[in-house]
């Protein structure tokens, strides 16, 4: 199983906004147990809210990582606020929109919202499903002295493939953001 809770990136503006979608399928194992039928109630398959939050963390994490060409190890450090107002049923699509509130060398804060779309009614207004504020840390800068692996264990090949297959150009930007970028000799290699 791949721990990726978004299916496709549909918009990525460097350092500004990332929009991703996820289709919810009854074939996903997690829906079998959340929630199963009991003697008194029929099954109620809904995507668990923590996994919706994970989808936002991945959407916003890609946004923050992309701002520095995925050189930083971007770690979800804190969930500032998460408010859920609707359920995520199978057969529907979730649309994640994450926006950068603040980004610097130490990390970033993001604000995002999740909407539920009905593929059967493509012109209907999306239903607001969640509002999520996240804080990310650039782990190797914020915690100098820790024995961390050299390779970027956050943005694995599976993540970069998702970004690439969504049509995002992964070639390094000419003007990367973040204080280390201008002097980083690896940036141009």
């Amino acid at each position: 199983m791949r721990w990726i809770w978004i299916d496709r990136i549909i918009e990525l503006e460097r350092g500004v906004r990332c929009i991703a979608v996820k289709n919810i399928s009854l074939a996903e194992e997690v829906l079998h147990d959340h929630f199963p039928a009991t003697d008194n109630h029929p099954a109620m398959p809904v995507l668990p809210n923590p996994l919706i939050l994970e989808g936002m963390a991945q959407t916003a994490g890609i946004l923050v990582g992309h701002a520095n060409d995925f050189r930083e190890k971007v770690i979800l450090a804190k969930v500032g606020r998460a408010r859920f107002t609707e359920a995520a049923w199978p057969g529907y699509c979730l649309r994640y929109t994450a926006e950068v509130v603040r980004l610097d060398g130490a990390g970033a804060s993001t604000h995002g919202h999740v909407e539920r779309l009905d593929p059967h009614q493509p012109h209907a207004a999306p239903v607001p499903l969640a509002e999520i504020e996240l804080l990310f840390s650039h782990i190797d800068q914020a915690r100098t002295g820790l024995d961390l692996p050299e390779h970027n264990f956050v943005f694995t090949r599976a993540f970069l493939e998702l970004v690439s297959q969504s049509g995002v150009d992964l070639s390094p930007s000419k003007a990367p953001q973040g204080p280390e970028a201008p002097d980083n000799p690896e940036a141009s290699s």
């Binding site: 450090a77 804190k78 500032g80 509130v101 603040r102 130490a106 990390g107 804060s109 804080l135 840390s137 914020a142």
Partner: peptide
């Protein structure tokens, strides 16, 4: 420690 970053932002 991570709260300090949050507070600064």
């Amino acid at each position: 420690s991570i709260d300090f970053l949050d507070i600064v932002f």
